[in-house]
């Protein structure tokens, strides 16, 4: 493979990654609204409807992903989970991952 062609391949791979990252951020924000997460957690993800609902902006992604998964499956059913379980039918694990990753990037 010529150097130029190799460079082109690398460049387009980088471009694809960058587009991918931007798309994920846009998807995260869009999903946060479309799946109605923001109704309770606040449009900025840190102004929750009730004082005892968690602020999510900047929270650990893995932690949030696990909570979403466990609330959906019923593995976690204490506290305020009853308020959230009913809407979790709207969200699959792939979407949970995108939402969690995006929320973790917020300040």
């Amino acid at each position: 493979m010529s150097k130029i062609r190799r460079l082109a391949v690398v460049m387009s791979a980088v471009a694809a990654l960058m587009t991918g990252a931007t798309a994920a951020a846009a998807d995260g924000a869009a999903l946060f609204k479309a799946k109605t997460c923001w109704s309770c957690h606040g449009k900025d993800a840190k102004t929750p409807l009730m004082p005892f609902y968690p602020s999510l902006a900047g929270q650990n992604a893995e932690y949030m992903f696990n909570q979403m998964k466990d609330i959906k499956s019923g593995a976690r059913s204490n506290g305020n989970t009853a308020a959230m379980k009913g809407v979790m039918g709207l969200v699959n694990e792939e979407e949970m991952r995108v939402i969690a990753d995006w929320l973790a990037t917020l300040q």
Partner: peptide, 21 residues
């Protein structure tokens, strides 16, 4: 947070937990 909003919050928290059961 004022005492009143804390009380409201707690009452609501209990209600939300209870209403599930």
């Amino acid at each position: 947070m004022s005492l009143k909003s804390m009380v409201t919050g707690l009452t609501a928290a209990v209600a939300i937990s209870l209403s599930f059961g």
